[in-house]
């Protein structure tokens, strides 16, 4: 099925077309989310939300960009929203710990990554902290550029910017990350 055909079928609410879309894009979407969230379970959850959003909004998709670009843009936005949500939860935990409220600390501890070694957890936590300090556009450019099979042109397409801007964002992101990690 070509993309316009798939799109027409999706807009008509065809379930088989939606299953085909999921099959085609699930791996890429999960891995975009994983690059941002650095946690498999969270990445899988958010990827599911991405497809739900696609299903709900496909009728509004006007075709200004490629379908894939639109889907990856949703994946990026959803991942960033999740990061913001997690950061809010961490702030609540810190307040909970300060106030000595055990339940809140336990609740967040339960959400932490049980599949990683302590060293990996420390590394990931440091990396997350450094990534959180980056301006959003730098973080998006750097993260997407690390998704397998992506070149900076694709990143520019998703971010709706120029290739030069993406190159510069990635360069500055790397410099900033280094300086944040050294501090």
């Amino acid at each position: 099925m070509t993309e316009p055909e798939l799109l027409a079928q999706l807009k008509a609410g065809n379930k088989t077309a939606f299953a085909e879309l999921v099959y085609e894009y699930q791996l890429k979407v999960i891995n975009i989310c994983y690059r941002f969230l650095l946690n498999k379970a969270d990445a899988e959850d958010i990827a599911q939300e991405v497809f739900i959003e696609v299903h709900q909004s496909i009728k509004q998709f006007r075709g200004d960009s490629a379908l894939s670009t639109w889907i990856y843009r949703i994946a990026t936005t959803k991942s960033l929203d999740e990061i913001k949500k997690q950061n809010r939860q961490k702030r609540i935990t810190s307040i909970g710990e300060l106030l000595g409220i055990e339940q809140i600390a336990n609740w967040v501890a339960a959400k932490e990554r049980p599949d990683k070694t302590l060293e990996e957890k420390e590394g990931l936590s440091l990396l997350m902290k450094a990534l959180n300090k980056l301006p959003e556009s730098q973080r998006i450019a750097l993260t997407l550029s690390k998704v397998e099979g992506y070149n900076n042109t694709k990143v520019a397409e998703i971010m709706e910017t120029t290739l030069t801007a993406v190159d510069s964002l990635i360069y500055r992101a790397k410099q900033n990350l280094k300086s944040f990690l050294i501090k």
Binding site: V22, Q26, L27, I30, N31, Y34, R35, L38, K40, A43, E44, A47, Q48, F51, I52, E120, G123, L124, L126, L127, A130, K146, E148, L177, K178, L181, I182
Partner: peptide, 25 residues
């Protein structure tokens, strides 16, 4: 340590969805 962390970020490999991912979706 910083170098390791950056390398870790660079070398994150792709993941495969778990078996129940489609059902959950």
């Amino acid at each position: 340590k910083e170098k390791n962390i950056l390398e870790q970020f660079e070398s994150i490999s792709s993941i495969e969805p778990s078996a129940e991912w489609n059902d959950k979706l």
